[in-house]
Structures are given as C-alpha cells and as structure tokens.
C-alpha cells in the first residue's frame, strides 16, 4: 500500500461484470483515485498481531433444525423474473 494505487478500471469492471461507458471510466478513475489516495493512510497503522474483525459480535455455529418448511409457491417465486416460461426462468442460450 506504500506505492500509489494502480486501479486498472477495465480489469476491475470486468471482474464486477459491470459495463462502463468511456465517460464513466474517466470520471470513476479520477474520483476513485482520490478515494484510494485517502485510503492510503491506513498503511500507517501498526496492525502487527491484530486479529481481523469480520463481525462486531462474532456469532458462530448457528445451526437450524434440518426440517422441511413450506417455501414460496412457484408463481410467487417467479413473479419478479424478467422472463419466464413453463415455471422456468428464460435466459439467453448458454450451450449451442
């Protein structure tokens, strides 16, 4: 983190499955560059021997009884699907 951040926007947008316009790329590069520069100051903190915190109150091993419960009826579950047919979600062809 000591070196200047090198944000390869093209690569990251691809990882995020997010198409960006040339104008967005230019704007985000500059804006996120500013944010990343600000974030650089975290490199100053001595974190030797410090455990990471994922949740403020670690709750571990939350078990549920393995019993079947009623779920959503198929019509309700599919109500928000952008395209559907025969109780299935329609998507572009995946395999030729």
């Amino acid at each position: 983190m000591s070196s200047a951040p090198d944000l390869d926007l093209e690569h990251v947008a691809k990882l995020a499955r997010l198409a960006l316009t040339p104008a967005e790329k230019e704007q985000f590069s500059q804006q996120l560059g500013d944010v990343l520069q600000h974030i650089e100051q975290l490199a100053k903190v001595d974190v030797t021997g410090i455990e990471p915190t994922a949740h403020a109150f670690p709750v571990v091993n939350v078990w549920a009884e393995d019993v079947a419960r009623p779920g959503l009826p198929v019509e309700v579950a599919l109500r928000n699907a952008p395209a559907q047919r025969d109780h299935l979600i329609v998507v572009p062809k995946v395999v030729e």
Binding site: M1, V12, L15, I39, L42, A43, V45, V47, I50, E51, P52, T53, A54
Partner: peptide
C-alpha cells in the same frame, strides 16, 4: 477484494476495525 490487493486493503481494514 481482488487478487493482489486483498491483504493490503480488505484484510488490513478488518484489522484496523479491531482497533
């Protein structure tokens, strides 16, 4: 979160969160 930056950013931030 991306490969090569995870430790420097995300993991470090989680440690600072502890502090």
């Amino acid at each position: 979160l991306s490969s090569g930056y995870y430790d420097a950013y995300y993991l470090r931030a989680q440690k600072v969160r502890t502090l």
